[in-house]
Design a protein around this nucleic acid. Structure first.
Lengths: 212, 212
DNA sequence: CATGATCGGATAGTGGAACTATCTATTATG
DNA sequence: CATAATAGATAGTTCCACTATCCGATCATG
C-alpha cells in the first residue's frame, strides 16, 4: 500500500498523513528504496485510532503522541492507563483555597466510602477537585447530597468498563482496548446520559411552559 | 464595582473582560456617563460561569455565547437544554455508511428498550452514532454486549441529574442549574469514573506485570 | 482645580495549534 | 521514455483566544 491508497483507505489527506508522520503519530512505512515506502493495514488502523482520539476524544496532537507512546511501551497496563488519563487532562481550573479545601474534603469522604484510594499526585484527583470547586463557585453546593450517588454509579460503570477489557487475547489488545475504552467511553456515556436526560426531563415536565 | 475590581474579584484580566464584553459573553455594565460603566455581583457570577464553561466544559467562545443566549431567552427549559446540548457538540466523526447503519440500529434497539425516543434531528443521536461508529471502526464491537448496561446506568445518572434541578425556587435558577449540571456534570462524572476504574483495575489485576 | 491614574472603546498584534501547499529530487508505471 | 506519484523539507494558512496599545474622557486625590 502506498501513500495515495493509505489516504483513500483512511480518508485522511496525504498532506495530513505526512504531518502525522513528522509528528510521530504514525510509524514510518517500510522502506523499499531510499525515498520510497510501503504501508499496511496497521497504518490504516493506527490512522483511525489517531482520528478517533483527536475527533472523539478531543485530544491534542501532543496528547495523542503521549498516549500512543504509552501503548508502544506497554510494560504495565496500569502505567499505560496512567499515561492515558494524564493525556485526557480533564479540568484545569483555578479555584480559591477555601473552595479547594472544601472540594478536597468532600472527595476524600466519598472516596473512603467507596474504598477508592486517592493518591495526591494523581491528576484525576486534581480534575475532580477543580470541577467540584467550579460547581461550588457557581453556588451549586447541593451537589453534595448527590455526589455519593454519582460515585456509586461511577463504580458500576467502571465495572462494566473492566468487563470489556477482561478476557481479551493479547496484552497489546488489552492495552489498546483500555485506551480506546477510556477515551471513547467518555464520549459515549456522555451521549447516552443526554438521551436519558431528555427522556427523564420530558416525563418529569411533560409540557413545562414559558414563565411561571 | 469598576473594571479593576471586577477583574480582581473574578481573576480574569482586564483585557480579557473587555474581549468578553465585545464578544457578548458579558452584558455591558450600567452606564454612569457616556464612557464609564459600573458592574455588580451578577457580572462576577457571569464571569465565573463563562470560565467554567470554557475551562471545564471545554466549549469555544462561540458555543458559550450560544448557551448564554439560550439562558437569556429561557422561554422553555427544553429549548434551553436543547441549545446547550447542541453547544456541547460532542462528536463529529466521519464514518462509512454500513458502519453508520450498524451503529444506528444498535442505538435504536437500546433506546426502545429504555423507552427513549430518538428524534433524527437530535444532534445527540448523531454524536452517539458517531462514537459507536468509531468503536466499530477500531474493532471494538464487543461493546454491543455492554451497551444496554451503559444505557441503564445513564438512566440512573440522569435521574440523579434531574433530582438536582427539581425543587429549585426560580425558573431562571432551574435553567442555569440545568446548564451548569449538563456541562460540568460530564467533567465530574468522567473524573469519578476514572477513579473508579483505577480502583477496579487495581483490585482485578493487583500486580499485573510486564509481558505475558 | 490640577494632575495622574483609570476608564471604555477601538484596533492591531501575538502565539499556538492543526493543518495545507509548494518544492526538489527520486522512483514507479504504462 | 514520459508521466505520475513519492519522500522529505520548508514555508504558508487559518482559526482561535487572547493581549497590547492608543485615544480621549472621567475619576480620585491632594
Amino acid at each position: 500500500m502506498r501513500m495515495a491508497e493509505l489516504s483513500a483507505e483512511s480518508g485522511v489527506p496525504v498532506a495530513t498523513i505526512k504531518y502525522y508522520l513528522r509528528e510521530g503519530l504514525l510509524p514510518p512505512g517500510e522502506r523499499t528504496s531510499p525515498n520510497q515506502a510501503r504501508y499496511d493495514r496497521e497504518h490504516v488502523r493506527r490512522l483511525k485510532l489517531v482520528r478517533a482520539l483527536l475527533d472523539v476524544g478531543g485530544l491534542s496532537i501532543a496528547r495523542v503522541r503521549e498516549v500512543l507512546d504509552g501503548i508502544e511501551e506497554h510494560d504495565d497496563i496500569h502505567k499505560v492507563l496512567g499515561t492515558t488519563q494524564r493525556a485526557l487532562e480533564l479540568t484545569r481550573i483555578a479555584v480559591d483555597e477555601p473552595t479547594r479545601d472544601w472540594a478536597m474534603d468532600l472527595l476524600v469522604k466519598v472516596a473512603e466510602e467507596r474504598g477508592w484510594q486517592l493518591r495526591p499526585d494523581n491528576p484525576v484527583v486534581e480534575s475532580a477537585v477543580g470541577t467540584l470547586g467550579a460547581f461550588a463557585a457557581l453556588g451549586r453546593t447541593e451537589l453534595v447530597e448527590r455526589l455519593a450517588g454519582y460515585a456509586e454509579l461511577a463504580d458500576q460503570v467502571a465495572t462494566l468498563d473492566l468487563a470489556g477489557v477482561r478476557g481479551l487475547p493479547e496484552r497489546e489488545t488489552v492495552v489498546e482496548a483500555a485506551v480506546v475504552g477510556t477515551v471513547l467511553g467518555d464520549a459515549l456515556f456522555a451521549a447516552l446520559r443526554r438521551l436519558a436526560q431528555e427522556h427523564a426531563s420530558a416525563t418529569t415536565w411533560p409540557t413545562l411552559p414559558g414563565r411561571p
